[in-house]
Design a protein around this nucleic acid. Structure first.
Lengths: 234, 234
DNA sequence: ACGCTGGTTTGCTCGACCGCAAGGAATGAG
DNA sequence: CTCATTCCTTGCGGTCGAGCAAACCAGCGT
């Protein structure tokens, strides 16, 4: 396998304060893979043999319930770890990461993890922070789903996507990967219909501008006001 | 401060494969504290200076929204770590752990964490597993809140409590700490009224038996059937 | 024993949101 | 260009569960 260039990952916070030599050693055992839109990196329930890092693109991690209902557990952004199942003490993957945009992932065999941690506690600490952050996000989501009604939840979700995947454009901030109404519904625990209705309403008030698998936030302030519960009609 | 006996924690999975000497060194830096029912170990938003381990008792970790709505983020059982805010890259505590029963906690100053990890990667790995498990539980809860209607969610929550805090009794399995309807509501994202109604209905069908801050599961199988969506009336 | 406090039960009403259904627009394939 | 697929919109009716209100009850302190 061809060597992987250090510069690809050097800037990631995960590898901050890791010596070049260490990093090279780590990269020597990694492999890379392209994932085309709609393709799954691995499948829920499959035996977990590797763990992954997203270099480029965007993934949505989905879970399906026994009844066939689907939800999006989280969105993976460049620089995020995912599929670290064995760190979670399980031998199968709990979800399916699907490429929402053309993506490039990097992966290591599971056994590497033990070595890494032994030799480089920094990385372990960083990884733990990452997982900790996930945990907090999850709790935030639980709190929102428990206490807020749909409109506010969706507003929050959109704002979060904006932070994580927003891209400045002439007339607002664009969510920088294909995102359907259905996706937003699965992120917020509602239905595609309700999301569509909400977006329509917001668009007529000039807060956002929608499109096929597209979303543009024009008035961040008003959206935040809504998310924070200020009724804010007009 | 008096020495803390190794036997108190030896059996915890968190400290599995940790040498006695190491463990003693760790315990030497720990302190212990009793928490009486209703008392908070620390408060949400407070600066995080220590991290904790629950030795005995039961805690419910609550968060309050800006609007004053309260939810229970999770229940802490003996042997669980909690308040590991700095591992999550934040300097304040995200929630308030309140004693639901008389409890004993153990705690360490934050700085200790770094040393521990450096000297004992095992512990880091174990801690990560713990957090990973939390994350999974959170995702499970998100999935349930997204896809299941209230009755099934509550059934799931009760079953989980049963696993974690159940105690065999003559005529069923008793949840071994004071748990109000309100608590269950805050765990499942519903209202005390709805929970009360559900429990009444279940009781009349012989599935559970309620009491003031008490709950006894008489027919686990039927409860599981309900949680799994089998309508199961009769 | 008495009255308080905090937990629980239960009825009623109403609204947010889901689910269905039908149609419309954008995109890609042949 | 046309067709098919996929995504989006919108109307309508039904319902689950929230919210309010009023009792009720158990346990505690005095």
């Amino acid at each position: 396998m061809a060597d992987i260039d250090r510069s690809l990952v050097r800037s990631l916070p995960l590898f901050a304060n890791m010596a070049d030599a260490e990093l090279d050693r780590l990269l020597a055992r990694a492999s890379m893979r392209r994932v085309t839109i709609g393709e799954a990196v691995f499948e829920q329930g499959q035996k977990a043999s590797q763990f992954y890092l997203l270099l480029h693109g965007r993934l949505k991690v989905t879970q399906v319930t026994p009844e066939g209902q689907q939800i999006i557990v989280r969105v993976v952004h460049p620089g995020d770890l995912f599929g670290f199942a064995q760190a979670l003490q399980r031998d199968d993957y709990p979800g399916t990461p699907i490429a929402a945009a053309e993506s490039v992932v990097m992966c290591w065999p599971n056994e590497v993890w033990g070595n890494i941690v032994e030799q480089n506690p920094h990385l372990a600490v960083n990884a733990m922070r990452t997982i900790g952050q996930r945990l907090q996000e999850a709790h935030t989501r639980i709190r929102e789903m428990s206490t807020e009604e749909v409109e506010r939840r969706v507003a929050h979700a959109v704002l979060r996507l904006m932070e994580q995947a927003g891209r400045r454009e002439e007339d607002g901030i664009h969510i920088d990967f294909p995102l359907s109404r259905q996706d937003v519904a699965e992120l917020t625990g509602t239905t595609l219909h309700t999301v569509s209705r909400l977006f329509s309403a917001w668009e007529s008030r000039g807060i956002v501008k929608g499109g096929r698998q597209k979303l543009l936030v024009r008035d961040k302030a008003r959206l935040e006001a809504m998310a924070d519960g200020n009724a804010a009609d007009n």
